[in-house]
Simulated scan of single mutants.
Amino acid sequence: MAIAQITVNTLLTQALHGLVFGMILLLLSLGLSLIFGIAGVVNFAHGALYMVGAYVTFVVSSEFTNVLGGLVAAFVVVALIGGIAEVLVLRPLYDRDALFQLLATFGMVFIIDGAIINIFGVETHRVATPEFAQGPLMLGDLIYPKYRLALVGISALFTIGLWMLLEFTDYGVRVRAATFSSEMVDALGTNTKTLLTGTFMLGAGLAGIAGGFAAPVFTVYPAMGLNIIILVFIVVVVGGLGSFRGAVIGSLIVGESIMLGRVFISEYSAVVPYIAMIAILMVRPHGLLGREMEVE
C-alpha cells in the first residue's frame, strides 16, 4: 500500500487493532512478570496456558452458548493448572539451577500442546462474541467491532484491579516483599509456599483469561501459544523485567508497532517489534523502566 493511499480511517483502525492486541499482551506480560517477580521463574509455558484458556472458552461457549461463562472458566481452569504445575513440577526445582526450571516449563509446553492436539485435533475453531458486545460501533466515520472495544475496557479494568491488589492490600505487600527477600517474609510469619502457589495461580489465570478474551478475536488453534509467547517476552524486555508500568508501556509499543507496521511495511511488519526492542535496549539496557539486577 502506497503511503499516499493510506487514509485516516485506515490508520485509526490499525491503531485500534494495535490497542486491542496490546491489551492482550499486557494481561500475558503482567502474569509472566508476576510469576518471575516472586518465583524467579521464566515461565516458557505461559503461552501454552494462554492457549488452554482459549480452548476452555471455546468448549464452554460451544456447549452452553455462554461466552462470559467461558471466560470465567478459562481463568479458573488455567489458574488451577498453574497451581498444580507450581507444586508438582517447579517447587522441587527452586533450589537448583535456573536452567532446570526453564527446561521444566519448556517441557510443559510440549505436554500441553500434545494434550490439546490429541483432544481437539489440529483444526482451527471460532468463538462467538458475547451477546452484549456483538455488532459494530460508530466512532464518527469509523466503524469498529464493539467486542474489541469492550475487550480494551475490560482488560484495562483487570490491569487497574491488579495494580490496586498489589499496591493497597496485605497480599500485595507480602508479594512485593517476597520479590526482594522471600526468606525474610517467611521469617516474619508468612507461609511463602502458599504465597508462591497463590501468586503462580494468579499469573496463570491472567494468561488463561487473556486467551479467553482473544478467542472471539482470533481463531483458536494448537500453535497459538507458541506464536504469542515470543512477543510477550519482547514486551517484558522492552518495559523492564518486574516493572508494572513497564509492562503497560511495552505492551502498547509492541501491539502498535505490529499493527501500524502492517500499514507502512506490510512485508516486514513481523520484524518491527524486534527492531524496537534492539533500539530501546541500546539506550536502556534494562528496559524502559527496569532496574539493574545483580547476578550471583
Rank of each mutant, 00 (worst) to 15 (best):
I275L: 07
L231P: 12
L27N: 06
I265N: 04
F180T: 14
N191M: 03
D113N: 15
G22V: 03
L202Y: 01
I230F: 03
H125L: 11
L281V: 03
G225F: 00
I234G: 05
G18K: 11
V67S: 06
F158Q: 06
H46M: 11
Q14M: 15
G107F: 02
E296R: 15
A48P: 15
T192E: 00
G172C: 03
Y94A: 02
I119V: 14
F168Y: 04
E183T: 07
D186V: 06
G31M: 07
F218E: 11
L139E: 03
S155C: 01
F244S: 12
A39W: 06
L102I: 15
S181D: 08
E63A: 13
G189T: 08
I38C: 13
V295I: 15
V127L: 06
S155E: 02
F58C: 06
L281S: 02
L202H: 02
V89R: 12
S33L: 09
E131S: 14
T65L: 10
M224N: 04
V271P: 04
L166I: 04
G83H: 04
D141L: 07
L252H: 03
H17Y: 09
T10M: 12
A85Q: 08
G287R: 07
F110N: 08
T219R: 11
F218L: 15
G161T: 08
A133E: 01
W163L: 10
L99A: 12
F233S: 11
T7Q: 13
Q5K: 15
L165W: 06
F158R: 06
L252M: 01
G121P: 14
E256M: 13
F44I: 14
L241A: 03
A2I: 12
A187S: 15
S257Y: 00
